[in-house]
Design a protein around this nucleic acid. Sequence first.
DNA 1: CCCGAGAATGCACGCGTGTGCATTGACACC
DNA 2: GGTGTCAATGCACACGCGTGCATTCTCGGG
Lengths: 340, 340
Amino acid sequence: MDGNKPSRADVARAAGVAESTVSRALNDSSLISPAIKDKVRRTAEALGYRPSRQAANFARGRTGTLGLVVPRYTSFPPFSRAYFPTLLDGVVLAAEERGFLVTIVLDKAETTGDRLAEMVAGRSVDGFLFAVSPAKYDRYNCLKRSGVPFALINNYHKGFASVDARPEPGMRDAFGHAWGLRHRRVGYITGDLAYKNGVDRLETFRRLSAEFGMYPSEVEGNFSRTSGYEGAIRLLAGPRKSRPTVIMTASDRAAIGVIGACDDLGMRVPEDVSIIGYDDLHPARDISPQLSTVHNPIEESGKEAATLLIELIGKERRKAAAKWLDTSFVARESTSYAGV
Amino acid sequence: MDGNKPSRADVARAAGVAESTVSRALNDSSLISPAIKDKVRRTAEALGYRPSRQAANFARGRTGTLGLVVPRYTSFPPFSRAYFPTLLDGVVLAAEERGFLVTIVLDKAETTGDRLAEMVAGRSVDGFLFAVSPAKYDRYNCLKRSGVPFALINNYHKGFASVDARPEPGMRDAFGHAWGLRHRRVGYITGDLAYKNGVDRLETFRRLSAEFGMYPSEVEGNFSRTSGYEGAIRLLAGPRKSRPTVIMTASDRAAIGVIGACDDLGMRVPEDVSIIGYDDLHPARDISPQLSTVHNPIEESGKEAATLLIELIGKERRKAAAKWLDTSFVARESTSYAGV
DNA sequence: CCCGAGAATGCACGCGTGTGCATTGACACC
DNA sequence: GGTGTCAATGCACACGCGTGCATTCTCGGG
């Protein structure tokens, strides 16, 4: 065995064909006859030849890399801790299935649209996925102007490619579930209304509570556990006759805060108060009682977003499409018949 | 303005120099005179020329990319949720400071040492960083044999490059703190002893409790909140005279479980029981009472590991060095004078 | 005045692929 | 038999940098 890495030329020589034939055979081109293909593959395998992904991408004029833009966690801890790793799993799995790698781009103050466009011009990545990003539309517009492919995750906006999940299906089932358990007064602790998600979920709550004919009461929150705790204290302050028997939140974390508040108020979950969260991230199953919640398909969102972005990069798709996934409802232990 | 991207040749022509001069000027080579350097830079700026990082790395024979190997979160949820994003911040910051990108490699069953070595042979990445990885030493040996640069994070093992934090300094201060608050009986809930970290922390606990002359009691756990809860129930079951007045854990999550247990047992924190966690991840500050804990420098570990790996890749460093960081103790609200 | 040394610059090529185009050979059809 | 067609293969080059080496220029010392 010789110490050097075998080159494409070595394989070509050993197989008695031209280098271009080796290239096409290994890429399964329809131009090459099955017999030669097989022979080349065996030879390559025998020699231990590893084509350079780097050179291949270079020759193809792409980088084969997606940039996933995320806030610096240490400066933006409020986003749900399990959200990012879950999303990442989906993005990376879908990307590698199509031969792409995923690199992390930390979203700092100096990360402007121009800076991101430079990363594409400078061949660091082929395009961007935005996760957990506040609504910086000037930045997105800048990218669009530069012709940089990108997609938003969980953050629909007209004119931009995006993947998002409708709150409607899951929340409708949650309402149906609560209605079936004889709940008639429903409390809601909103998410951060600076985020589209927060607004969407609130509007869906309003529509559905009207449709179901349930008496709603609302408190503004921001997805955090603390906001859930404080919101619950306020929602449950009234007289027993008028206070909600089921509380819905815009995040699992807030729902966990609600459980804490009930605990402190001496109310049992779910006997005295039912609770329904939103997201269905891992914590939902870890806590006691296990949380009934609206399942947000985060890993799928990541997969779909990566797929969409790769289509955009490959020009397989022209227009910036918006893809919608469905939420669903998961009944666990934090909901039961309405007391009284 | 012409629609095409300006090339290095365009810049050379406009500046009246050779392409190699452009290259050297933009890379700040000492061969080029300051006057020409300045001129070339202005010209490049004016034309909007963006050198291709991809081609540069290709020509240099490297990829400029670090592979960060992490378990699939959705199949390995137990690791602390804030751990990974915190680490990621450190790794990416240090990497981009030295002109490297970071790509995520999901650690699946089929991700063997050979597969990882292929990624280097196939020019996908220059080397690997292992985070949150169980001890698969055969894999590491395989990589070492193939000459693949890699470093372990928070997982020291002789012969491999690694970055880890000594439990000793932080835990010593924790003991000093507890001793000063008149605690004499200390309980400990271990981490998962299949992990080196779990064993290290336990051994340090034993050594320090002996050294301080505090009466220790131990329960085996596994870093999880549940194990903290159950461990506390057992530790606090004995008669008041003999049970521990301060409980230490191997993770913040377990400490949170301890708080829950005290709550359920009707014991107040810190009035009746003091609690000291380990890691100092964000949850430690979010909960009530805020957790006194041993600070584990996770972001720094990420930075140091990335730096170390890049040195290994650049052959600036031959031997696989082990780098050690120090933990420290952070006093917050979950500790006070021993009752009794 | 000549020559050598060192600084500054230009030339040419390699890195390892993908792919357009030319070439070859086989085969069917007129 | 001639010719057009199509499948299969080979040839040559581009992709955009970095860099070894040759070359030119400058300047000081003999």
